[in-house]
Simulated scan of single mutants.
Amino acid sequence: MHDSFQRRLRWLVRLTLVGTLFTAVVMLVGAWTRLVDAGLGCPDWPGCYGKLLVPDNDLATLHHPDVPLEPFKAWVEMVHRYIATLLGLVIVSVVALGWPLRHRRDYPWHLSLMLLVVILLQGAFGAFTVTLKLWPQVVTLHLLGGLSVLLLLFWLHLRLRLAVAPKPTSEPRRVNAWWGIAACLLVVQLALGGWVSSNYAGIACQGFPTCNGQWMPAMDISEGFHLTQTVGPNYLHGHLHADARTAIQVVHRLGALLLGVGLIVLWWRYRQWQNVVRPLAIVVGLYVLQAALGVANVVLWLPLWLALLHTAGAIALAVGLVWAWWRWRYHEAGVYSTTTHSPYNNVIVQ
């Protein structure tokens, strides 16, 4: 019985790792879909002009005479849907494979169920993205939903690895203010990034560090962050005026600055913790790289490959912080260097 449990756990470890990597691929394909303006390549959902494969122009015209078929954009959108569906099947497989283990105390069954709920909601937001014509609120929530799926899969993978090879450890730590503030800053910045993208404000500011040659450019914050506007007929290329988009870009830059401060403070706070300092140093390094990519996107006028790298950087930064948090949460308190006094037990840790 124990051997069967361990085999099933090992398969789940592999499957959740594959799922984590595949989620990142799905998110990057989704970003590519948006960057090539293919988000409405198919005007309906779940099919494309009523078909599961992109039809020819005659059939498309019969189904949606008001929306001309653009084959490239339609195929880009459908490829995104196909691989997103495959990701859903991977997650269903994770839940099905874990079903016989659901009553075991050392199996994170509730985390698996949470993952299933989130992927179902993510599918619904994918449909709303099309049916509500790229409404910025839905597009941003769709991005955050994708990140939620990614991080839940990664966390489940780490939990399963712990179940396969349990190590002596103290009780998992609760989130404290240091980690809570860093996590909140990251979530807000990721949401701002989605808001920039969904409102096509990526190059609203020319130049860096100034915006359009000014430290305080003309901005319309109330319009830029008006979250209750009605659903328009089509948000492709955005509806906001220049000052509103400038406000979004400037707030995103300020959010990046605050996030950097928060991550550096977090690293400084735990710089003597052997099990945490290296992951946090990697996180800070990823932040510096991500900030550089953001600047390059502005200076080079948002080339496709660079915008995709910026999305990949956001994914890596989120995964890196979760990994660092895991290392802190599930390792013993006395993990300082050999010559450092621990504030928890007031002895030198050997």
Results as ranks from 00 to 15, higher is better:
2 H>Y: 15
9 L>H: 05
10 R>V: 04
11 W>H: 10
19 G>H: 12
20 T>M: 07
20 T>A: 15
26 V>P: 01
31 A>Q: 01
34 R>M: 01
34 R>S: 02
36 V>Q: 00
39 G>Y: 12
42 C>P: 04
42 C>D: 01
51 K>F: 14
52 L>G: 02
57 N>P: 00
58 D>C: 02
60 A>N: 13
67 V>Q: 12
70 E>D: 03
73 K>A: 06
73 K>E: 01
74 A>S: 11
85 T>W: 10
85 T>S: 04
86 L>K: 02
90 V>G: 05
95 V>Q: 09
97 L>H: 01
99 W>L: 13
108 P>R: 10
109 W>I: 06
109 W>S: 07
112 S>I: 11
113 L>P: 03
114 M>G: 15
115 L>R: 05
116 L>S: 12
131 T>K: 11
136 P>N: 08
137 Q>W: 14
142 H>R: 06
145 G>L: 01
145 G>Y: 08
146 G>T: 10
155 W>S: 13
155 W>F: 14
162 L>P: 14
163 A>L: 04
167 K>T: 05
168 P>W: 14
171 E>G: 14
171 E>S: 15
175 V>M: 14
179 W>E: 03
186 L>S: 05
186 L>T: 08
186 L>Y: 14
187 V>Q: 11
196 V>M: 02
199 N>F: 06
202 G>Q: 00
203 I>G: 14
205 C>N: 06
206 Q>Y: 12
207 G>W: 04
221 I>T: 12
227 L>I: 08
232 G>C: 10
234 N>H: 10
235 Y>L: 10
236 L>D: 00
246 T>Y: 07
248 I>Y: 04
249 Q>W: 11
249 Q>S: 09
250 V>E: 00
252 H>R: 12
253 R>D: 11
254 L>V: 15
259 L>K: 10
260 G>F: 08
260 G>V: 05
260 G>K: 06
261 V>S: 08
261 V>L: 08
262 G>V: 14
266 L>I: 02
266 L>G: 00
268 W>S: 10
269 R>E: 06
269 R>L: 12
273 W>N: 00
275 N>S: 12
276 V>G: 00
280 L>A: 08
281 A>H: 03
285 G>L: 02
285 G>E: 13
287 Y>E: 01
290 Q>W: 06
293 L>R: 04
295 V>W: 15
296 A>R: 13
301 W>D: 11
305 W>Y: 10
307 A>T: 02
309 L>Q: 08
309 L>Y: 03
311 T>C: 04
316 A>E: 02
319 V>E: 10
320 G>M: 13
323 W>S: 11
323 W>T: 04
324 A>E: 00
326 W>H: 08
327 R>H: 07
333 A>R: 12
333 A>T: 13
337 S>C: 05
342 S>R: 06
348 I>R: 04
349 V>C: 11
